[in-house]
Structure formats: structure tokens, C-alpha cells
């Protein structure tokens, strides 16, 4: 299934490339205000092949790619599109030689595979739920539940810092273990509360040691209200203990997988 690797040789001279954001059905329309990556932002256009299309923009091959603006532009473009049509998002940084290459080397050879994935996706989008513990609340909880942490804390009171490094490390490790266990339990609780509204769920790695949950859902756009309501209920239950955030609708970054990559 892989395209020939030597086909770029005649294209070496060109100074622009074709940045690829994602794959969508062919009836997708580019909105005129869509801002692409690059500085100045590239104009977003659509490369179509049969029933599928790629969202692309020209990009200067001389410049670096990956500024905060680039990252935001990539995701905002895909998320906006995902609210309207099924979208298979590319990972940040996909660049091909030109629109012709996108058509001939990406869309045409994988047309049926992409089309099947788009149909399967249907009206579903991704949501991200992030929970972060409120420090005072979670530490008090741990101290009240873990006697050894409580004892160590008592021992440390009034002691000079440099004499108690090992004890403090020991205390911190116990707290970290307790929080990790709470995170696992609370993550499971988020999944349980929301999975009835989702076609699929996945758990992301925590990005902070006080993360309470980091869960992604693939859900019908039409069920967003129910999802928000269920999460708000959990938020009320956890008020003062966990701060919850809901992001979405997003393109289904966590739920696309390249079958062709199995080789």
C-alpha cells in the first residue's frame, strides 16, 4: 500500500509544500475565514478525490512549523470542521509535496478505507473531560484516610527542613500513591457516569500529578446536552474537591487509527 519513496526527487526545488489537516467527505466546503498554519496563515483549501477530500493549505518549506499559533490553527480548523461533517484528523505536522501528491498518494490509494472510516464515524465527535484535584481538599482527604501520612506529618511539625529531607520524601511518596489510587477510582467514576452517552471512551495519561481524571469520549454531537448534564451532576458532587472541565466538540483525535500502519 505504500507509495513510491523516490517520487519526490523531481520536486526538490519547490519552496512550498502542502500541509494536510485531515480527511473529510468530498462535499465539505472551505469557509473563507479558515486560518491555516504558517506565518502569514495559509489559505485553507480542499483537495477532492471521488467521495473524499483533504483539508490542506500551502506552507512555506523554508520556515519552521510548530509555533503556538500553528498548533492552535491546526486544532481549531479541525474542530470547526468536525462540528459540521465527519473528519479524520491528521496528527500535527503532516506535509506533502503538493495538492497533486495529496490526491494521488494519499486520497486515491486509501479512498475506500478513509470513506469507510468516515461513514463509521457518522455524527460522532470527541469530547475531553479533565478533572484536577483541589489541593487543600485532596490533601486533607489523604491525611484523614492514611494513618502513616498523618503520623509522618506530625513528626515533621516544627522540624528544620534540612534535617527531614528523607522523611519529607517518604511523606510525599505516600501522598502521591494515595492520589494515584484516587485518580484511578475517580477516572473510573467519570467513565461510568458518561459512557452511556458515548460510543467509545478512552483514558489519557495524566498531565499533572494532581489530575483527577483525563478521559476522552466519542459521542453523538446530538447527545452533547445529556453529556453536559451528567458531567454537571458529577461536578456538583465533587464541588470543592475536583475542578472539572469539558472540551469539545473536537475532531476524533483519540479514536482514529491507521490500519495501513499495521505492516
Amino acid at each position: 500500500m505504500s507509495a513510491p519513496t523516490d517520487s519526490e526527487t523531481p520536486e526538490q526545488q519547490v519552496s512550498t509544500g502542502c500541509y494536510v489537516y485531515g480527511i473529510a467527505p468530498a462535499d465539505l466546503e472551505a469557509t473563507s475565514d479558515a486560518r491555516g498554519v504558517g506565518d502569514p496563515p495559509g489559505k485553507v483549501s480542499i483537495v477532492r478525490h471521488d467521495q473524499i477530500a483533504a483539508l490542506v493549505s500551502d506552507i512555506d518549506l523554508g520556515g519552521p512549523l510548530g509555533t503556538p499559533e500553528d498548533l492552535l490553527a491546526h486544532q481549531q480548523l479541525l474542530d470547526a470542521a468536525a462540528s459540521e461533517v465527519p473528519v479524520l484528523p491528521m496528527r500535527f505536522g503532516a506535509v506533502m509535496t503538493d495538492p497533486e501528491a495529496v490526491k494521488e498518494e494519499l486520497l486515491a490509494p486509501h479512498h475506500d478505507e478513509f470513506l469507510a472510516a468516515l461513514n463509521e464515524l457518522g455524527g460522532r465527535v470527541e469530547y475531553v473531560v479533565k478533572g484536577r484535584y483541589v489541593e487543600e481538599a485532596i490533601l486533607s482527604e489523604v491525611l484523614s484516610e492514611v494513618p502513616t501520612a498523618q503520623e509522618l506529618r506530625q513528626q515533621l511539625i516544627g522540624q528544620p527542613e534540612d534535617a527531614t529531607r528523607n522523611l519529607r520524601i517518604q511523606l510525599g511518596e505516600i501522598i502521591n500513591q494515595a492520589i494515584t489510587a484516587k485518580r484511578d477510582a475517580d477516572t473510573a467514576k467519570v467513565v461510568e457516569a458518561l459512557s452511556q452517552f458515548a460510543a467509545a471512551t478512552a483514558v489519557r495519561e495524566p498531565t499533572h500529578e494532581q489530575d483527577a481524571a483525563h478521559v476522552v469520549l466519542l459521542a453523538e454531537l446530538g447527545r452533547q446536552g445529556e453529556l453536559e448534564q451528567a458531567l454537571a451532576e458529577l461536578g456538583r458532587e465533587w464541588e470543592g474537591r475536583v475542578n472539572l472541565r469539558l472540551l469539545g466538540p473536537l475532531a476524533p483525535y483519540d479514536f482514529v487509527v491507521a490500519e495501513a500502519a499495521q505492516q
Binding site: 505504500s2 509544500g17 512549523l65 498548533l71 496528527r91 506535509v95 506533502m96 498518494e105 483525535y253 495501513a260
Partner: peptide, 28 residues
């Protein structure tokens, strides 16, 4: 949030085509 989402998730063009990332410096 964007960093958590788009840098290591999504389709990888290399899986489909070998001619990606033509001479561009991608900051990761």
C-alpha cells in the same frame, strides 16, 4: 489542551505515504 491532543494523536501521514515532511523543520 492542544498540545495534549494534536501532537501524538491523529492519523500519521507516514503510515500512508513515505514522502511526508518534505524539508520542513517541525518543532515538536
Amino acid at each position: 489542551d492542544v498540545i495534549d491532543t494534536i501532537l501524538d494523536k491523529g492519523l500519521v501521514i507516514d503510515a500512508y505515504v513515505r514522502v511526508s515532511l518534505v524539508g520542513i523543520e517541525v518543532l515538536t
